[in-house]
Simulated scan of single mutants.
Amino acid sequence: MAAQPKPLPVHQPSYLEGGGIVGWLTTIDHKRVAVMYLASALFFMAFGGLEAMAIRVQLWTPDNHALSAATYNAFFTMHGTTMIFLVVMPLLLGFLGNFLIPLQIGARDVAFPRLNALSFWLALIAGILLHLGWIRGGLPDAGWFGYANLTERYFTPGLAIDWWVVGLLVSGISTVLTGLNFLTTIIAMRAPGMTYMR
């Protein structure tokens, strides 16, 4: 009886294989995306810390003139925005959510891996847009809460508030896409027998 030839093994490319910088920049693996969220959040945390130190220098002594009133308001605005939208949200949703949710529910990855990577890149672009005022148009001084009267052209002329608003919109889109991805992952990709209460 003649021995049947063994079929040659076919190499199945995996999205987890990419090495080097290109592998990290093009990854759709939820754990790698989580690490990139962590790295960007730590970078913006350092940036927000520098903004906080400038605020503290101004508050160091009474009647200090280290920063003008408008510059102080701009640093206050950028510090609050940076810490909430570029540090806290990426750490909670991006890092912890991306890293833990698929592992906790027994899923191989999130429901939409490419959408997950897009959410990260949108969050990073939002951070760049929010801080583009450092280079073009000055910084917004409307407070990180963005009261309507302070965001009007009369109180904040120039492009500063425009870059800030566009950055916040892109950040919001990123957060919504991440939330929809997690919701779909939790509903559709749980391990067999795992109920919502488990």
Score class of each variant (00 low, 15 high):
A69V: 11
T82I: 04
A69P: 07
A39K: 10
W60L: 13
L130D: 04
M78V: 08
A123M: 14
G106V: 11
M53E: 12
S40F: 05
A142G: 12
A117W: 03
K31P: 02
L42C: 09
A66T: 13
G146Y: 08
Y72K: 08
N98Q: 06
G106P: 09
D141T: 09
F99V: 00
V33S: 01
Y72E: 06
M83E: 02
M78A: 07
A46F: 10
P113R: 07
L103Q: 15
I125V: 15
I55T: 03
G133H: 06
N98A: 04
I128E: 12
F76C: 00
T82S: 07
A52P: 00
A69Q: 15
T151R: 13
F44V: 05
F99N: 15
L100G: 04
R56P: 02
A123V: 02
W164Y: 15
P140R: 06
L150F: 09
L130R: 03
V33Q: 02
G137R: 10
W164D: 04
N116V: 01
R56M: 07
Q104R: 15
N149H: 11
G143Y: 04
R153E: 11
N73C: 00
L50D: 11
L86P: 03
P90H: 13
W121H: 11
A34R: 02
V87W: 08
R56L: 06
L92G: 12
K31M: 04
L86N: 07
T61M: 13
D141P: 00
T151F: 00
A69E: 15
Y154F: 07
D162I: 13
G106K: 05
L59D: 10
K31T: 15
A66S: 14
V33P: 01
L86I: 01
L132D: 06
S119T: 10
G80E: 06
V87M: 11
D162G: 01
A41Y: 01
A52R: 07
Y147E: 10
I135R: 05
L129A: 10
T77I: 10
N98W: 01
M36P: 03
L159H: 11
N64C: 14
W164H: 14
I125P: 05
I128D: 13
S40P: 00
Q58C: 02
W164C: 08
G80I: 02
A111C: 03
A111L: 05
R56C: 00
R108V: 09
A123N: 13
M78Q: 13
A69R: 15
A34G: 04
G127M: 13
S68Y: 02
V87S: 10
P62V: 05
F155K: 14
A52N: 05
L93F: 14
S68Q: 06
A54E: 14
R136H: 11
D162Y: 05
L38C: 06
L92F: 11
L103P: 01
L129F: 08
D109S: 15
L100P: 01
T61W: 09
R108T: 10
W60H: 13
Y37I: 11
M78E: 14
F44G: 04
H79P: 05
G80N: 06
A41I: 03
M83Q: 07
V110L: 14
S40K: 03
F120A: 07
M78W: 03
D162T: 14
L115A: 12
Y37S: 10
I105Y: 06
I135F: 11
M53H: 09
M83T: 04
F155S: 13
